[in-house]
């Protein structure tokens, strides 16, 4: 029976020329035992096929994308991109800072201009001491710069910076002691990590937030 069964499998494989298939089919039809065997096999395969495709769980794509390894680039490029290049944070677009004219300041200059909590004054708000922090951001060609962070619930229009001479944008934030993640927003669409922050934190979506630490 082994040789005959091969015909069945050949048919199930769907291979062979149309003439060969027709011939095999009639052979199978003619023999009741073969026919039954064929039906049984075909039925079991149909069952499996009808079990069908299994849909992937919800958020599958989002989870995969959030777990992708960081893009490997030359380390010079990596540093620049990591800290200095802003991105339009929309899913299908990416853009460099050149479009918004943010100039990359030299490393030497940058290292001396930390956004450390410069205690220009302290005050009390509802019994807690508050420290005024001045943030500076060098962007001579930007038309508008705002800052959004943990301190303002990431509101993109609550804290607008003012442009001073020399292309430096600045603002003052009254903050209670704590740790605050934040980013600048240039011209309403490009999010930029503060190159002058002392430390940084991943925001959970693969972008780098700058971090401000205010001590008691």
């Amino acid at each position: 029976m082994i040789k005959d069964k091969d015909i069945l499998h050949k048919l199930l494989d769907g291979e062979g020329s149309p003439e060969e298939r027709k011939k095999s089919e009639s052979q199978v039809q003619a023999d009741p035992a073969l026919r039954k065997e064929y039906e049984d096999l075909a039925r079991s395969l149909r069952t499996v096929k009808e079990g069908g495709r299994v849909p992937a769980p919800a958020f599958f794509t989002a989870e995969v994308m959030s777990k992708l390894p960081p893009r490997r680039v030359s380390y010079g490029e990596r540093v620049r991109e990591f800290f200095f290049r802003g991105r339009i944070l929309r899913w299908n677009l990416a853009s460099g800072l050149a479009a918004v004219g943010v100039v990359i300041i030299t490393a030497a200059l940058m290292l001396r201009l930390y956004n450390k909590p410069v205690e220009t004054s302290s005050a009390h708000l509802q019994g807690e001491s508050v420290i005024i922090v001045r943030l500076n951001f060098y962007a001579p060609q930007a038309a508008r710069v705002a800052v959004a962070g943990d301190f303002n619930k990431w509101n993109v229009s609550a804290n607008i910076l003012s442009k001073k001479n020399g292309g430096i944008w600045t603002t003052e934030l009254p903050l209670k002691p704590g740790v605050y993640a934040y980013m600048f927003i240039v011209d309403g669409k490009t999010w930029v990590t503060d190159p002058r922050a002392e430390t940084y934190r991943d925001d959970g979506f693969g972008y780098n937030n700058s971090v401000l630490r205010i001590k008691t």
Binding site: A58, F59, T61, A62, E63, M65, S66, L89, R90, W91, A148, D150, K153, W154, N155, V156, A181, W191, D203, G204, F205, Y207, N209
Partner: peptide, 26 residues
């Protein structure tokens, strides 16, 4: 607070809602 921060910034940054939700739940 950390969870709220994550959701709020995800929305402001224009991250797709699915991804924000997955990151917040995570």
């Amino acid at each position: 607070r950390p969870v709220l921060n994550r959701i709020e910034q995800g929305l402001s940054k224009g991250v797709p809602a699915e991804r924000i939700l997955s990151a917040a739940r995570g």
